Simulated assay, not measured.
Amino acid sequence: MLPSLYTVAKERELYVSRRISAIDIGSNAIRMMIADIHEQAPYLHIVKKYRAAVRLGHDVFTQGVITPASLEIAKATFQRYALTNRELGVTKCRAVATSASREAKNQKEFVDLIYKTSGIKIEVIDGTEEGRLIHLAVRKELDLDNKKSMLIDIGGGSVEVTFSQGPKMIATKSFPMGTVRILENLAKRNLTENHMNIIMGEFIGALGEHIYKNCDHDPVDFAIGTGGNLECLGQLKGELLKKSPQTFLTLAELTEIIDRLRSLKVKDRIEKLHLRPDRADVIVPAAMLVQTIMRQAETEKILIPNVGLRDGLIWSML
């Protein structure tokens, strides 16, 4: 017997989805992810990811503004993303800008230009909202029940350190010590990668206070790392150490990866490890930031769930 029209309709209803996109305007790149959200379950299916190497942080952290050249590149990137959204049937897009855009003196010019030329509205969010969205992505991916965890998001302009008791976020703080900012700080002082500890030492007091306040009497069970640099470090575990899986790192493994990377020039990281140029120069600062935070929190393991701000943005649109 054929199913009734009502039954067919109800079955189809279970698979109704919306195609939406999320754009993360960071200090090192502008990334977009398109996903189908199945609201009844709910779950998301990633359709496509895009990345444009637009280093807004270089401008802002050295000159205080997004330069005309970068504005043009960003404009072209958003026009391309808007066209992609239309071609792939995206019904809703949310775009957020973080550290570099927060500090840019011509922030309004940037936001207005992108809206006028692409129709995409940019929200400039603070570090707390950034931490909340990343936490949302992580708790959708990992089972955090009955565990205390520390989330570390390494960006180009800032680092967000968030504490979670079970699935509940209990504290988050943003620190202006991202990878691009560190590189620009080194260049400004005519220092090299070997002097990284000098730069990081300037932030260690505030960072240590945040960690001490949230895990001294109640230590974390593990850390969770998000962002492209963490995902790259997971891949380097296989590439450099010949170990698996790539979904977590021990502190000892991370330290060994740092030693191996520091023995290679940026050019060699590109040629021998096949890292993108805009990853090869920031990967050591990123790894050392993670190492410092893990040591401060006295935790030996960091999970790498391969989700981040864009995933949190997608979930936030449900």
Rank of each mutant, 00 (worst) to 15 (best):
I199K: 00
M196G: 13
L273V: 06
G157D: 08
V266S: 09
S4A: 09
R102E: 03
R102K: 07
D145E: 09
T7G: 00
I73G: 06
K237Y: 08
I302V: 15
I270A: 07
A82E: 07
E193C: 02
I20R: 01
L183I: 10
E253G: 03
S316T: 08
R262A: 11
M32L: 07
R51I: 15
M196V: 04
P68W: 05
P68R: 03
I314A: 12
T91P: 00
E72R: 04
E271W: 00
F163S: 01
M288L: 02
Y212P: 02
R132N: 14
C93L: 13
E39G: 14
M150G: 07
G131K: 08
I73N: 13
E87W: 07
F61A: 04
L151V: 14
G127F: 03
I314T: 03
E109T: 15
H217D: 14
D36Y: 01
R181L: 10
D36A: 08
E202Y: 02
E13K: 06
L318K: 08
H195M: 04
T255P: 01
L249S: 09
T255F: 05
V282D: 04
D278V: 04
P68M: 08
G64N: 05
M317V: 13
Q246E: 15
P176R: 08
K108P: 04
L191V: 10
N214R: 08
N214L: 12
L303M: 15
A280I: 02
K147L: 14
L289P: 00
R86S: 10
I20S: 03
N28S: 10
L240W: 06
